[in-house]
């Protein structure tokens, strides 16, 4: 178990956002961090990335985490600079670049762009790209650093279906090649079902369950955590597909009827 979180708590303006998170995660897998809005997914990612103060301990291979050694990508990562895609990706190695960019660095950067199927964008200006394309470029930039721990906050939210598939494909290959641990906060449960090895379900700042998708996400959990009634179907690939049916009112199942009356 290389990533250990012990009694991690985050409090902001008197509200506790994370309470007593205890987690053990091994390397060589993709962990899908799921949960409703405000459950604390981003906060947990930010705490692991040492970007916000927390109490408790977070250890990576027994040591405190250093941001420059991990591959972290925030939710809002838009670039508004007059830089080309290849220049942006190269900055993933900014500590090692000299006055003349070494050919090895250049080839690595071009190689990873090719790997992610966006080599044709190499000379485009970052500002001319769509949000999803920028996300892809920034992801390749982070992976160019070859981090052993990758933290992604909604990294695929702005991508079309094809690129989502491609990203998880590449992440899977990266994990297989480097033995890295990828933790990805993700809203789309079906995407998590399809691509994550382990699911961690957060609810109101606590871990409501972790394990395989089937273990964690079932009808009862969806009812309790998301407040929805859903059907769990089985796809031909063997993966679960969630079909949301109805959402309860904001105060729970019993207020449903009152809620409807108010709406009418």
């Amino acid at each position: 178990m290389v990533l250990r979180l012990d009694t991690v708590r985050v409090t902001r303006s008197g509200t506790s956002i994370l309470r007593d998170i205890n987690v053990r995660l091994g390397r060589g897998q993709i962990v899908g961090l799921v949960g409703p809005n405000g459950a604390g997914k981003s906060t947990l990612i930010n705490a692991i990335a040492t970007l916000i103060p927390f109490s408790g301990t977070i250890r990576w291979q027994g040591l405190p985490i250093r941001l420059r050694e991990i591959g972290y990508m925030p939710q809002q990562a838009q670039v508004r600079a007059d830089l080309s895609v290849i220049e942006t990706v190269l900055l993933g190695r900014h500590e090692q670049l000299g006055w003349r960019v070494a050919t090895t660095h250049l080839d690595q950067a071009l190689g990873i762009l090719e790997d992610f199927g966006i080599a044709h964008l190499a000379r485009r200006n970052m500002q001319s790209l769509s949000g999803g394309q920028q996300q892809l470029v920034l992801l390749t930039q982070r992976l160019l650093r070859e981090p052993k721990l990758v933290l992604l906050d909604e990294a695929t939210s702005a991508l079309d279906i094809r690129h989502q598939l491609q990203v998880f494909d590449r992440l899977r290959a990266y994990v297989g090649r480097s033995g890295a641990l990828v933790v990805i906060a993700i809203h789309d449960l079906n995407l998590a079902a399809r691509h994550a090895d382990t699911i961690m379900l957060l609810d109101q700042g606590q871990v409501a369950g972790s394990g395989s998708f089937a273990e964690v996400i079932h009808e009862q959990a969806l009812r309790d955590v998301y407040g929805i009634e859903a059907e769990l179907l089985r796809a031909s690939t063997g993966h679960t597909v969630i079909l949301p049916v109805t959402a309860y009112g904001s105060t729970g199942p019993t207020s449903n009827g009152i809620h409807d009356v108010q709406l009418n």
Partner: peptide, 19 residues
């Protein structure tokens, strides 16, 4: 020089690149 170029990616990105 490179640090300043990296800063142009925005604080969030620059921070996560270890700057």
């Amino acid at each position: 020089t490179w640090a300043l170029t990296t800063l142009r990616l925005g604080d969030a990105n620059a921070l996560s690149l270890g700057l």
